[in-house]
């Protein structure tokens, strides 16, 4: 009986948390459209989420493109199709690996910081202070992060794709000797607008997932069962925010792909 009760209680906790996150997202979207509109906080968040992630995106993008090219060159050469190496690398990156890996990198770098920052604000009563000053915390703290993530994610994904394609070129053409002309020609011939569109839609959805999960986990750190207040509470919700965001990115990647294909 205890096992069933525990299962039920845990299920209710998850349903509660999902509900809180849903309401959090709705509240944030409402506040995005509410005046006053201030540009500086958004630019600051674009710097935090976007600019500060550029290095890690370039680094991971380059090596992803390089390993993709390496793997595909050997596979395609078995079938005499090395000429489509450029198109294979580009399509894999644009439609799948770019949005997913860029989102995972941003989750690890900016999402965790976002969750910890808001969590610390909660436990040190800074969010209560905003409420008491009649300043909506959703408007003041979360809305700029939300807008910044929606702007930054597609740009970071595009950067990941471009650097990945270049990394693939370095290995495929520079190292393994594939034809330079066919690398770019096949890419030009096979990559269509719908592929780019899929990448952009995915990156926007992943940006939304990262902000919603990471911000709401930090915002509700005091309501987290077993988490509670204090440094341990913040550290535990930050870990769970990163894990949940990463899992959701992969799960939603499947569903978005199945809808858009």
């Amino acid at each position: 009986m205890n096992a069933i009760e525990n299962f039920g209680a845990r299920t209710l906790d998850y349903v509660n948390e999902a509900g809180r996150m849903g309401l959090f997202l709705i509240n944030t979207i409402i506040n995005v459209f509410k005046p006053p509109y201030k540009i500086y906080p958004i630019i600051k968040q674009i710097h935090v989420i976007g600019s500060l992630s550029i290095f890690v995106i370039i680094f991971t993008g380059a090596f992803t493109g390089m390993v993709m090219s390496l793997q595909m060159y050997h596979t395609l050469s078995k079938y005499g199709s090395v000429s489509v190496l450029g198109s294979a690398v580009a399509l894999s990156l644009i439609k799948e690996l770019g949005p997913v890996l860029a989102a995972l990198m941003v989750t690890g770098r900016a999402g965790s910081a976002m969750c910890a920052e808001i969590g610390v604000m909660r436990i040190s009563e800074q969010i209560d202070a905003l409420d008491c000053m009649a300043i909506d915390p959703h408007k003041y703290i979360v809305a700029p992060k939300f807008i910044a993530a929606l702007i930054s994610m597609p740009l970071l994904t595009a950067l990941f794709d471009v650097v990945g394609i270049f990394g693939g070129y370095m290995v495929g053409v520079g190292l393994l000797g594939a034809n330079e002309g066919s690398y770019f020609a096949s890419m030009q011939a096979d990559v269509e607008f719908s592929d780019i569109y899929m990448g952009v839609v995915k990156s926007l959805c992943f940006g939304l997932i990262i902000v919603t999960i990471c911000s709401s986990k930090g915002y509700y750190v005091h309501l987290t069962k077993g988490g509670g207040f204090g440094a341990e509470g913040v550290s535990s919700v930050t870990t769970s925010a990163v894990v949940l965001s990463s899992v959701c990115i992969l799960v939603f990647d499947y569903f978005i792909t199945s809808v858009l294909l």
């Binding site: 610390v120 604000m121 040190s124 009563e125 800074q126 209560d128 202070a129 409420d131 008491c132 000053m133 009649a134 300043i135 909506d136």
Partner: peptide, 29 residues
Amino acid sequence: KKIRTEFGVLFQNSALFDSMNVFDNVALP
């Protein structure tokens, strides 16, 4: 929110914003 505009609160741990200097903290409202 309107009622809260009539409130001022000094929290136990002051609840100042760590990322803002003294001036910006007071200027925030």
